[in-house]
């Protein structure tokens, strides 16, 4: 019991010491909180619907945000898109490194690029 008395006195003296500093701040806090609560009382005190909707919206939006961006890596649905973009970029990098001019079909006589055509559009030579 002596220990509890000493503890109560210590806590009491700390609170008394802090009171002149903390109380004015508390009074300022109470000022704006009173304004907000008065607003809530005047406008949003008819039913709980508004508060239930806010709660549901917070939970649903948090679930959506978490599934898209859980923090350590992009979420599952987002990851698919990221993987596709990565594959596409890898393909582009591969193509950039290769010399594709050698693969183009050319006319045996004049060397003009042919594409899928069997007759050269420039010199008319048939490609057999």
């Amino acid at each position: 019991m002596d220990f509890l008395d000493i503890l109560a006195e210590i806590v009491g003296s700390i609170l008394l010491f802090l009171k002149p500093i903390v109380s004015p701040i508390g009074r300022w806090m109470v000022g704006w909180i009173s304004t907000v609560t008065q607003f809530l009382k005047d406008n949003l005190s008819n039913g709980l619907t508004f508060y239930i909707v806010i709660c549901a919206m917070l939970v649903i939006s948090a679930m959506i945000v978490n599934s898209i961006w859980p923090g350590d890596k992009p979420g599952a649905s987002f990851q698919k898109g990221v993987d596709k973009i990565d594959d596409f970029e890898t393909k582009i990098e591969k193509i950039d490194g290769e010399d594709i001019t050698e693969e183009i079909r050319r006319c045996k006589d004049c060397g003009n690029p042919l594409g899928d055509q069997e007759v050269c559009p420039l010199c008319g030579a048939r490609q057999i």
């Binding site: 709980l48 508060y51 806010i54 917070l58 948090a62 859980p70």
Partner: peptide, 27 residues
């Protein structure tokens, strides 16, 4: 009872958003 339920619900919703967010994230 009204204000405890109303504000308690909002606090619970905010708690879900806060605690489901990654640690030290801005959100």
């Amino acid at each position: 009872t009204f204000w405890i339920t109303a504000l308690g619900l909002v606090m619970s919703g905010l708690a879900f958003f806060k605690y489901s967010s990654p640690k030290q994230s801005i959100r």
